[in-house]
């Protein structure tokens, strides 16, 4: 085929459609964007598999969301709507800084309403609201390797994943239960994804783990320091590793309610103080819950 001037132009415009030259203020160039997108596609194709990527220096310290940030920057376009939460809070210093950075460099708009967001970057939580299939959840991951606690040798770790040899993980759960009577592991609970790879669900609490199972939305995990991306695609099995006779349990404090919205069925965190007080960890959800309860009165 000979390339006429016309077909070159149309190819050019198709390329621009696929990968628009959005200004990124030197944060992430086209090459980096393509590399991260490829890593994301690989991660989606092999659910739970940790895909290495060439993590870039970001204007946040590695381990402070640089992995999640790179994913968001590689995906976000000017028509996107971005929600960023840190520990469930849209107004945390980190969340505010990250959100501002993302919107300034990509031209996307910001929101705190989960329903409006197209991309949700989070540390520590999945929003309480049910997310939809057209939304993407991006989790900032400090420690992507679920077997880190039981094996340090990198080659052995790679072998264990390749052969789905997770007996050391099971032994650590066995020992946890023997020593403590229950499985005490809290955040980063190990889960088997799509019946094949074990992932660390770091940094979300156990409370959020069942919500990954067969979720309608795509979840991407980004670890900047460890240079890994992994994914739970929509409608994928996510099973917490536990013994058949030891049910997986989420955090709960009997009788505890949110001090602000009176909710009993959201993930609550204790606020430090003389008497025990609990509040919703998802601040935006709590705010809307309060409003709707006030409206009912």
């Amino acid at each position: 085929m000979t390339l006429t001037h016309d077909s070159t132009t149309s190819q050019q415009s198709r390329l621009e459609q696929l990968c628009p030259p959005t200004p990124r203020a030197g944060l992430i160039d086209d090459f980096a964007q393509r590399e991260i997108r490829r890593a994301i596609l690989t991660a989606i194709a092999i659910p739970g598999y940790q895909v290495p990527f060439g993590s870039r220096e970001m204007p946040v310290a590695r381990g402070w969301g640089s992995g999640g940030l790179q994913i968001t920057l590689a995906l976000a376009q000017s028509h996107d709507v971005i929600k960023v939460i840190d520990q469930g809070d849209d107004e945390g210093v980190n969340a505010v800084n990250l959100r501002r950075l993302i919107c300034e460099t990509t031209g996307a708009t910001e929101t705190s309403e989960p329903a409006e967001a197209t991309l949700i970057q989070s540390r520590h939580r999945i929003p309480e609201d049910e997310l939809r299939q057209d939304q993407i959840l991006i989790l900032q991951v400090p420690v992507p390797e679920p077997l880190r606690g039981v094996e340090r040798d990198m080659r052995e770790l790679a072998r264990m994943h390749a052969e789905a040899d997770y007996s050391k993980m099971w032994v650590s759960l066995y020992e946890d239960k023997v020593r403590n009577g229950v499985i005490t592991r809290t955040t980063g609970y190990p889960c088997l994804v799509n019946g094949r790879y074990v992932i660390a669900t770091t940094p979300i609490p156990r409370w959020d783990v069942p919500r990954l199972h067969q979720a309608p939305f795509l979840t991407l995990f980004g670890a900047g320091r460890e240079k890994r991306i992994y994914a739970v695609p929509p409608r994928t099995d996510v099973e917490p590793l536990t013994f058949t006779d030891v049910p997986f349990e989420v955090e709960s404090t009997p009788g505890a309610r949110c001090h602000r919205c009176r909710s009993e069925d959201s993930f609550l965190v204790e606020i430090p103080g003389p008497q025990s007080q609990w509040i919703c960890s998802d601040t935006d959800w709590c705010r809307r819950e309060r409003l709707s309860k006030e409206a009912q009165i």
């Binding site: 997770y166 007996s167 099971w170 032994v171 066995y174 023997v178 013994f243 058949t244 006779d245």
Partner: peptide, 16 residues
């Protein structure tokens, strides 16, 4: 016990 559990879980035992 954990050392024995290692072989059992490798063989697919999942009941504590």
């Amino acid at each position: 016990g954990g050392n024995v559990a290692d072989r059992l879980t490798a063989a697919g035992w999942r009941n504590f």
